Structures are given as C-alpha cells and as structure tokens.
Amino acid sequence: MQTEISKLISYWLRHNPKDANIVLDAYGWANIEDVLMALKVENIELTKADLIELSQRFDKVRWKIDVEASKIKSTHGHSIKVIQEAPPQTPPKILYHGTGIKNMDSIAKDGLKSMQRQYVHLAETIIMARDIGSRHGKPVIIEIDTTRLLNEGWHFYKTEEDVWLTKNIPAKYLDF
C-alpha cells in the first residue's frame, strides 16, 4: 500500500497536480496540507509525520520536504514545467543513460529525448544506469561525454538522488 501511495503522490507532484486540486509554485513546491487533503479524498489518512516517514522508507529519494515551510516537491521526473531552484552544476566528465535494447534504434537516430518529462535523466554510475535500463527490458548503457556538451552550451542540474538532468542530447554526443 505504501508504494501505491508514494506513486500517487509522485504522480500529482510530477505530472498532474490539478487532478488532486493541488497547486504547485513555479519551482514545483506544494503545501503538505493540500497533499494530505488530496489523500483524504482518496480515503487515505496520513499525518504530516506519516508523510515524512513514508518519504524516508524508499531506497530512492522521490520527494524533498521542507518541514518548516510545510512544503513538498518531487525531486525529478516532472512532465510539467518547473523551474530548477539550484543553479546549473558541472557534472562528472562522463555520465550514463540506461535504457532497454528495444529503444536503441530510435536513440541512435534521434538522440536522447526527454519524452514526456521535462529533462533527460542521466546517472553518475554504470550500475545506476543499468538498474534504470532494466526497467525497460534488457538494459543497454549509453555513455555521454559531458565536456563536449558543456562546451556547446548544455546546462546540467543535479538532484538529491544523484540523477543529472539536462535537455535533449543529439545522437552525435552519445557513445553506444
């Protein structure tokens, strides 16, 4: 049940806050009380403490919670437009993207695209990329030379989960 609740909250915070009558600010922050009220409408009773505990139970960081301001936001994965709060950072020289082998033809042709999300997601380690790629079938790891991208004007943002975000990357920057 906790996984389903977490996915529901993530869906609202990443993709469709209107579905739950939640208002996000320009940076993606929502009032915790609004999220708790939306859960109540779904017959899910949680307190603020329960929500904080739930966010700490999972192996990956899904949300950022500002206890003092009583706000919550998804750390990444947005399909709706949100402004990155942190300034761009310099990533490691190599980042990785994990995907399924079934996606390779389109990536080789069109590059990495954010698809329904606001940004392309990149991993710091091969292991992390492999784990992500495994969600899409037999995993394939794509290596990205970030130095070339930085030199050509790309910006990178690091999340709390060590996921790097950037705009679409043409195939010429990818090493399969």
Score class of each variant (00 low, 15 high):
K71C: 10
K71V: 10
K71Y: 04
K71M: 11
K71F: 06
I72T: 03
I72N: 00
S74E: 02
T75F: 02
G77I: 00
G77L: 01
H78N: 01
H78Q: 05
S79I: 07
I80A: 05
I80T: 09
I80R: 11
I80M: 12
K81I: 09
K81F: 10
V82I: 11
V82C: 06
I83D: 08
I83Y: 12
I83G: 07
Q84P: 09
Q84D: 11
E85Q: 13
E85S: 12
E85F: 08
P88I: 05
P88E: 07
P88Y: 07
Q89T: 10
Q89K: 15
T90W: 11
P91S: 07
P91K: 07
K93E: 15
K93W: 12
I94F: 09
L95I: 01
Y96Q: 05
Y96C: 02
Y96E: 00
Y96F: 09
H97W: 02
H97S: 01
H97P: 03
H97Y: 05
H97F: 04
G98S: 08
G98H: 05
G98W: 05
T99Q: 01
G100C: 03
G100N: 00
I101S: 06
I101C: 02
I101R: 07
K102E: 09
K102Q: 09
N103R: 15
M104I: 15
M104Y: 07
D105E: 09
D105W: 11
I107S: 07
A108I: 12
A108H: 08
K109C: 04
K109E: 04
D110R: 15
D110I: 14
L112E: 01
L112F: 07
L112P: 00
L112C: 01
K113A: 03
S114F: 08
S114K: 14
Y119F: 14
Y119W: 15
Y119S: 10
V120G: 01
L122D: 01
A123S: 13
E124K: 13
T125A: 03
T125W: 05
T125F: 01
T125L: 03
I127H: 15
I127L: 12
I127F: 14
I127Q: 15
M128L: 14
A129V: 03
A129L: 02
I132R: 05
G133Y: 11
S134D: 14
R135H: 14
H136S: 14
G137L: 07
G137P: 09
K138P: 02
I141H: 08
E143Y: 13
E143I: 15
I144Y: 00
D145N: 15
T146Q: 02
T146K: 04
R148N: 15
R148Q: 15
R148L: 15
L149H: 07
L150I: 13
N151P: 06
N151H: 10
E152A: 02
G153R: 05
G153F: 09
H155I: 09
F156N: 06
F156V: 00
Y157H: 01
Y157L: 03
Y157E: 01
K158V: 10
K158H: 08
T159K: 07
T159P: 00
T159A: 04
E160A: 13
E161A: 04
D162W: 11
D162Y: 13
V163M: 11
V163Y: 02
V163N: 08
W164H: 03
L165Q: 04
L165Y: 00
L165M: 08
L165K: 02
